[in-house]
Amino acid sequence: MAQSLSIVQKAGIGLGALFCVTVLWGAVQPREEPPYDPVKAHHEHPEQIVWSHNGIGNLGVTGTFDRAQLQRGFQVYRQVCSACHSINRVAFRDLEALGYGEEQVKVIASEYEVADVDSDGEPTTRPATPADKFPLVYPNEAAARAAQGGAYPPDLSLITKARHDGTNYVRSLLLGYRDEVPEDFAKPDTLWYNPWFASLAIAMPQPLIPDAEQVEYTDGTPMTVENYATDVAAFLTWTAEPKLENRKETGLAAIGFLIIMTFLGYLSYKKIWRDVKKGKPA
């Protein structure tokens, strides 16, 4: 029995030593260079800028939306983006959070048509009301692809949540169209080169044209593509997180409450155990 156990032990030690040698051998072997990927080589990360809703230090813990910026962003969306992209998760009455009055919201809603049925049950349309959501640009994905040459323009309601570093990503993407394409990147003729897009080749034509002054801001803000992209990115951040400010306020209140309760608990601990530590009964 002792001899059999010794053989088992020796076999275990041998296998362990073989495993260690194999691991060490793999560690010292030269690594093979991964194949060159022009997409990874030329892909750019979003430019980081300061946003009012990210608060102090751009950390996202505090901060509030700039209402004037949100209204400008909504203006850019309506005049540029809404031709292809919907924001179907947003109701017209939600626009009151941007600083629009009730009557203004009614006027904005009345400019849109939404699906309805008549008294006979037949499909029809009617002017939207504040209770309605922004209508879809296309009735379904097939219709959207047919109108866009096979590309599918996504709904933008949650786009900044669906993309990493969404607010900065949207802004960088809108400003990222380039005429010069790297020689080692084969771009299809039907697509546009944009190093901020995942595949570098995007089906959406450049929506913001430099020096075109596509949107006339009513508050006098300079009409530049940088301002257009920044403002619409902020607006789409709001559509994705309309309760962002409330969430931050609740979080800060909860942290303040926990700090106060921790301090009171410490004082209670000191008072209750003070005499016990001195050897006196509590």
Rank of each mutant, 00 (worst) to 15 (best):
L175H: 06
A151W: 07
D155N: 05
A128T: 04
Y100S: 04
N168Q: 03
I202S: 05
P135T: 03
N140W: 01
E102D: 15
P130F: 02
V181T: 11
L156S: 01
M204I: 08
Y177W: 09
N168E: 08
K187F: 07
A131K: 14
D120Q: 15
L98M: 09
R126D: 11
E183Q: 13
L156D: 03
Q206H: 07
Y112P: 07
D179A: 13
P195E: 02
P195D: 05
L95W: 02
Y112F: 15
F134H: 00
D155G: 02
E216P: 10
L208H: 01
Y112S: 08
K106S: 11
T224F: 00
D165T: 05
E141I: 07
P123T: 08
G121V: 00
T160P: 05
A146F: 10
A128V: 06
G150E: 05
T125W: 03
R126L: 03
K133Q: 15
D219A: 00
G166R: 02
L174C: 04
Q214C: 06
T160F: 02
K106P: 04
V107L: 14
R145E: 10
P195F: 02
P182H: 01
F92Q: 01
A128S: 09
G176F: 02
P222H: 06
V215S: 00
Q206S: 03
E111R: 14
F185D: 00
Y217F: 15
V170H: 03
A143I: 01
T167E: 08
S199A: 12
A162L: 14
R93S: 15
T124L: 09
P182C: 06
A142F: 13
W196Y: 14
V117H: 14
E96W: 13
E103R: 14
T224H: 04
E213L: 15
D179C: 11
E96F: 09
G150Y: 10
I108T: 09
D184Q: 00
S119G: 12
A115V: 11
